[in-house]
Computed example of a mutant assay.
Amino acid sequence: MPITEITSLQELLQTLNASTPSKVIVQASAAWCKPCDAIAPHVDRLSNEYGQKSEGGGEEQENGEKKEEGGRKGEVKFVRFDIDKAADLAQELGVRAVPAFFFFSDGELVDEYKGGRVNLLQEMIGRNV
C-alpha cells in the first residue's frame, strides 16, 4: 500500500478519524534529511508488508487453507509529512529530530520512535500490531 502524503494537522486528524485499519504510523521527515532518505525504501517495504490486504495470494498450507505472508497484512496505514511543509503538525507531535515515527491506534498516540534504524522501527511496529 502506498504511503499517503499529508500536509497539515487537519489532514492527520481526518486520516485518524476515517482510517481503516485503525492503526496508523505517521512518519515525520524532511527533504534535506539524509537519514530520512536512507530509511525511505525500508518504510516503503514495511508499508507494503503491513498495509496491504492479501488478495487471494499467500501460501497454501498443508490443510489447503491460505496463509497470508507475514500474517499481518492490512493492519496498518502509513502516512508521511515533511516538517517544513506542515509546521503545525510537527509542532503538535513535538518533532525535534527526523526521521520520527508515531504509532496511533484508534486515534490515540500509543508509541513513537525517533531515528533511522530499521530494526528499531520494526520493533515498534511489532509491539503495536
Rank of each mutant, 00 (worst) to 15 (best):
M1P: 09
P2T: 09
T4K: 12
E5F: 08
I6Q: 05
I6Y: 05
I6E: 02
T7A: 12
L9C: 08
Q10R: 13
E11I: 01
L13K: 15
L16S: 07
L16F: 00
L16T: 07
N17A: 15
N17V: 05
A18Q: 14
S19V: 04
S19C: 08
S19A: 15
T20W: 05
T20Q: 14
T20F: 11
P21D: 03
S22K: 13
S22G: 10
K23M: 05
K23I: 04
I25W: 02
V26E: 03
V26C: 05
Q27K: 13
A31Y: 06
W32H: 06
C33K: 00
C33S: 00
C33A: 02
K34C: 02
P35F: 00
P35S: 02
D37P: 04
A38D: 09
A38E: 11
A40D: 10
P41Y: 01
H42G: 09
H42S: 10
H42A: 10
D44M: 08
D44N: 11
L46D: 00
S47F: 06
N48I: 01
Y50E: 00
Y50G: 00
Q52W: 08
S54D: 08
G57A: 09
G58C: 01
G58H: 01
E59R: 12
E60K: 13
E60S: 13
Q61L: 12
E62S: 14
G64R: 07
E65T: 09
K66W: 06
E69S: 11
G70Q: 07
G71N: 04
R72L: 06
K73V: 04
K73N: 10
G74I: 01
K77R: 15
F78C: 02
R80I: 06
R80Q: 12
F81R: 09
D82E: 06
I83G: 05
I83C: 08
D84R: 09
D84N: 12
D84K: 09
K85S: 14
A86S: 04
A86H: 08
A86I: 09
A87C: 08
D88M: 07
L89N: 07
L89K: 06
E92L: 11
E92D: 15
E92M: 14
L93W: 10
G94S: 11
V98S: 01
V98C: 07
P99A: 03
A100Y: 06
F103P: 06
F104K: 10
S105K: 15
D106M: 06
G107Q: 13
G107I: 09
E108A: 14
L109W: 14
V110R: 15
E112F: 14
Y113F: 13
Y113M: 07
Y113E: 01
K114Q: 14
K114T: 15
G116Y: 02
G116W: 03
G116E: 03
R117A: 13
R117C: 02
V118C: 10
N119I: 13
N119A: 13
L120E: 09
L121K: 08
L121T: 01
Q122M: 12
Q122T: 15
Q122D: 07
E123R: 15
M124H: 04
M124V: 04
I125W: 02
G126N: 13
R127K: 14
N128E: 07
V129R: 08
